[in-house]
């Protein structure tokens, strides 16, 4: 079980793998995640369920190569098996007819946002999606996201595709333009943070999906804890989705940076051991 069916590089540094995991596929819902361990000595890292196919019994993951674990995942081939592939974890997104929803996706965040957008569309919402990336060559799944959106806006930092600028610009325009019931923002922390700051003055509920560092992802270790308003929450069991207006972003960022030096050391060793040249 949990064998890789196919794996490809969607765009530079972003990979998509389809994995045979019928039991997880049977249960999977938009917004949930998995714990993946590439090999016996590997880390347990969380990855969102980017898609699932109950009939085929497969799960799709999309990940960006940034360090040892994600490079290890990218180096695996069809037929290889993950040492651990656990899920589905966390709370699923709340899917109902809210009215108009804006889906803001930054970078690799397009993958986790896609199944939520699809489910919201199926539930009868008007879905407006804003997809941002650094440049054209890093855009992926535009067609998929567009296919479940009533309106689909592309933003790039360098203007090589869509509009030039940040995702928060059209976000603000749309909220000013029409009644929006809820905003989903998934992507790098700064992008989620600024999306939440953009919507706050308009009091539009904004859901973000936090990417705390995790180990067990069952509520056993507390390593993934975050401050939400005045409360401590565990991202793995209470989240990963939270009210973006209540998240303590500075604390999240600093906790994510806990192992920066170690990660570099681990990655240098990985490069040396694997002979990969960047």
């Amino acid at each position: 079980m949990c064998e890789i069916v196919s794996i490809k590089e969607l765009v530079p540094t972003i990979f998509e793998a389809v994995v045979k995991a019928p039991e997880i596929a049977r249960k999977a819902k938009a917004g949930e995640f998995l714990i993946v361990m590439p090999d016996e000595k590997g880390e347990r890292i969380p990855l969102t369920i980017a898609d699932f196919d109950r009939d085929e019994g497969t799960i799709t993951i999309v990940f960006m190569t940034i360090g040892t674990s994600t490079y290890k995942l990218a180096a695996m081939k069809p037929g290889d098996k993950y040492f651990a592939f656990v899920g589905p974890l966390g709370h699923a997104s709340e899917i109902k007819n809210h009215g108009t929803v804006i889906m803001v996706a930054g970078g690799v965040g397009t993958a986790p946002i896609y199944p939520i957008a699809r489910a919201l569309k199926e539930a009868g919402n008007k879905v407006i999606s804003i997809q941002g990336s650094r440049s054209k060559e890093l855009l992926f799944w535009e067609d998929r996201l567009a296919s479940v959106s009533d309106e689909h806006i592309i933003m790039t930092d360098d203007g090589t595709a869509g509009r030039k600028g940040l995702v928060t610009e059209p976000l603000k325009e749309i909220i000013e333009r029409e009644e929006v019931a809820i905003v989903y923002a998934i992507g790098p922390v700064p992008m989620m943070k600024f999306s939440a700051l953009t919507t706050k003055p308009f009091k539009v509920k904004t859901i973000v999906s936090l990417n705390s560092i995790m180990i067990d992802a069952t509520g056993m270790c507390g390593g993934c804890r975050v401050n939400i308003g005045t409360e401590t929450k565990f991202t793995c069991v209470d989240g990963p989705e939270f009210d973006g207006h209540l998240v303590d972003w500075d604390l999240l960022t600093s906790r994510q940076r806990t192992y920066v030096k170690d990660e570099k050391c681990s990655f240098d060793k990985y490069l040396e051991d694997s002979g990969v040249i960047l």
């Binding site: 056993m220 270790c221 507390g222 390593g223 804890r225 604390l251 600093s254 940076r257 806990t258």
Partner: peptide, 16 residues
């Protein structure tokens, strides 16, 4: 301050 970076539960420390 107990959610600061560098604060662990025993479970997390020992599991790691």
């Amino acid at each position: 301050g107990e959610n600061l970076g560098g604060v662990y539960s025993a479970n997390e420390y020992l599991t790691r």
